[in-house]
Design a protein around this nucleic acid. Structure first.
Lengths: 214, 214
DNA sequence: CCACATATACCACTAAAGTGGTATACAAAA
DNA sequence: TTTTGTATACCACTTTAGTGGTATATGTGG
């Protein structure tokens, strides 16, 4: 039942590696089986050892963490990957997760928290510290808010048609759906483009998708 | 230092309200000062009492939680709002957070966790349970991955043009940017639409934006 | 070397999209 | 009541978009 987790440590600071390795190796169920100080090495070691988990520093010189992450995925390394970094920028967090990291831990975490995360991640669970949760949440929040004012300038009809445009519907199809003539649809499109300051339905569609007009 | 938090409870299950109210009122620093069983009531009560925090059920009959949430924001209710629900669907979580909820708690949380969340939220902090963190994270993850296979079927040129289409560029503009004729651009557009199984550049643009082709 | 994929180009044609103008009906606001 | 905003409609016209076909040059993998 006590499954042993084999860990690859990737960080360009030897001292930090020492410290973390020591911490990890004190645990009976965890051990650092390899270390790397840059992305290229990381990939080699990952392929050679196929560790259960890779602890990956984001801010490395040379091939950075995100690139390394992508490269690892591309190289069919199946290890779980936890990003380990000082950065709590929204950008970094979301990008790391999008590219397939199983977790994201800040370097100033308590040792116990780090160990807990390592154990969970090694089992394939996704872990995120509470602080980062909040960053993620506000990232999502900001995603929707902008330029709502423009939407308010549109009439109900225009908004309705904007939504259909963003579905890819042609004027003809829109006309059929709303049971009005195509000519009328064109008028609404014309008005909505003018209000939004856009030059084509394509721009309108992109706008609608980006600002999640639904 | 012991600030007292006044809470509005919104849920259409009287029994659940009873239980939660009892739990909250046992705490010296928290009290339920009003209850509502639907969205309309919630808004009235919120305006009347301006509570520090609103605990809002998502799955109410009639005006649902999300609508209520929006209406509350529109009504300039400045209370912190925590969504309290049985649903852990990605859709619900992200929508609630986008619309300005300060937190999201599942109804099957432990009482202590609920109280902890209430206290944090009342102070304006954003709280999200660990389970939901994972849902959020995988939401972000999925956002980028799908249908990459389709992209791989496109030639470099087609991909390049797809990107420009998603910027709203016309064929003429694309031709100028790439220094090829408009006719050639049309050919590429034709091919890329065929490969993607789409019927117009609008659909392609929407597709590109949604799957973040950049 | 040959076959295939890619990028390019031109053409003619059809189909959508977008513009400008005019007009009617209705409801809400001034 | 008059004005304004909205939704609707029709029309003529221009511009874009999309299709089908043919063709050439280049490079890559069998």
């Amino acid at each position: 039942m006590v499954s042993h987790s084999r860990i690859l440590l990737v960080d360009d600071h030897p001292l930090l590696r020492k410290g973390v390795a020591q911490l990890i190796n004190m645990e009976p169920d965890l051990s650092v089986i390899a270390e790397a100080s840059n992305g290229e090495q990381a990939i080699q070691e990952a392929i050679r050892h196929q560790p259960d988990l890779i602890l990956l520093d984001l801010n490395m010189k040379g091939m950075n963490g995100i690139d390394t992450l992508q490269a690892l995925k591309k190289a069919d390394v199946t290890s779980n990957i936890v990003v380990f970094t000082v950065s709590d920028s929204e950008e970094d967090v979301t990008r790391a997760l999008k590219f397939g990291a199983n977790g994201y831990i800040l370097k100033d975490s308590e040792p116990e928290v780090l160990l807990e995360f390592i154990r969970k991640s090694a089992k394939g669970e996704m872990v995120l510290s509470q602080q980062l949760t909040q960053i993620l949440a506000s990232a999502l929040k900001n995603e929707s808010s902008p330029e709502k004012t423009i939407l308010n300038q549109l009439t109900d009809r225009e908004l309705e048609i904007l939504k259909l445009i963003s579905l890819g519907d042609s004027n003809k199809i829109i006309a059929r759906k709303l049971d009005i003539t195509e000519g009328t649809v064109k008028v609404h499109v014309k008005h909505l483009l003018r209000k939004m300051g856009l030059r084509s339905r394509v721009e309108a569609a992109v706008w609608a998708v980006e600002y999640q007009v639904k």
